[in-house]
């Protein structure tokens, strides 16, 4: 099966007054067509920067990336036609209705006015927002915004969908709704590249995943393979969780300080 996303030594360095910051340091990835691929890491690990490079929103310092066979640096417009993007913040125009946002998005992807109307209707039904279609998005709940954001990433039926922390800030019920949407989108043939900090989310959704820390991929495989590897290597008697894998490969541990659980470098 061909790869939907590939990166070869992908690197991003931000230059600031305080000096250069290497946010992503030579990431190599291969995401297979049709899979849900999870990209995990702690805050500041380089997840979002990697997604922004893959979605043409941030320039690549060095290395190469392709999406659906298109080099994102050499042909960004070609790549944009192939991808859908829902970023960490559900970026929506608060002064437009849900329907207007979807129609606008469709027209920017080249649909005629009539085609945009039809597509918006289909997507509103898909994410169960038909009843709220005429309301300004500023009146939407967090979960509704997420669903609309997902729908707007699908207007042009992308081959690869990038979801950057799609459930951050959502209540458990809304999170389950988004998971269902992601599964439904993937079942329709779209490759999903998903970043998350929630390990149970990765466990529930992803067929394969990579863990990034400090800008480098520190582990990669199926959730079960990663757990099996840890169990064998540490000679554990109980089945480890994905959280155990995460703490092991990132060299972190959790400790309780003044009633709060903090993640610290071991």
């Amino acid at each position: 099966m061909p790869d939907a996303v590939t990166t070869e030594h992908l690197t991003k360095t931000f230059t600031s007054r305080g000096g250069d910051v290497e946010a992503v340091r030579g990431v190599d990835l291969a995401v297979r067509e049709g899979e849900i691929f999870g990209f995990l890491g702690p805050n500041g690990a380089g997840k979002s920067t990697t997604v922004r490079m893959l979605t043409t929103l941030t320039s690549i310092t060095s290395g190469r990336a392709t999406v659906a066979g298109v080099d994102v640096a050499a042909d960004p417009d070609g790549a944009r036609h192939k991808i859908g993007v829902a970023l960490q913040e559900a970026g929506l125009d608060p002064r437009q209705t849900g329907r207007e946002i979807l129609q606008l998005q469709a027209r920017l992807f080249g649909a005629s006015r009539a085609e945009a109307v039809t597509r918006a209707e289909e997507l509103l039904e898909l994410v169960d927002l038909t009843d709220a279609a005429e309301r300004m998005t500023k009146t939407y709940s967090g979960g509704m915004k997420r669903r609309l954001d997902l729908a707007s990433a699908l207007v042009h039926q992308p081959e690869v969908l990038f979801l950057d922390e799609p459930t951050t800030g959502l209540d458990p019920a809304s999170r389950l709704v988004v998971w269902d949407e992601v599964r439904r989108i993937n079942a329709a043939g779209t490759t999903v590249f998903l970043t998350t900090q929630y390990l149970e989310e990765a466990d529930a959704l992803c067929e394969r995943l990579a863990i990034i820390d400090g800008g480098r991929v520190v582990s990669e495989g199926t959730p079960q393979a990663l757990k099996d590897e840890l169990k064998a290597r540490r000679s554990l008697t109980e089945e480890p969780t994905l959280d155990d894998v995460f703490l092991d490969v990132t060299g972190r541990r959790r400790e309780r300080t003044a009633g709060e659980v903090r993640e610290v470098q071991a």
Binding site: L57, L92, S152
Partner: peptide, 16 residues
């Protein structure tokens, strides 16, 4: 406001 809210990135991800 659009830049700060993230919608501008959504527009930048379109092939226009």
């Amino acid at each position: 406001e659009e830049i700060e809210g993230g919608y501008f990135d959504k527009l930048r991800a379109t092939p226009v």
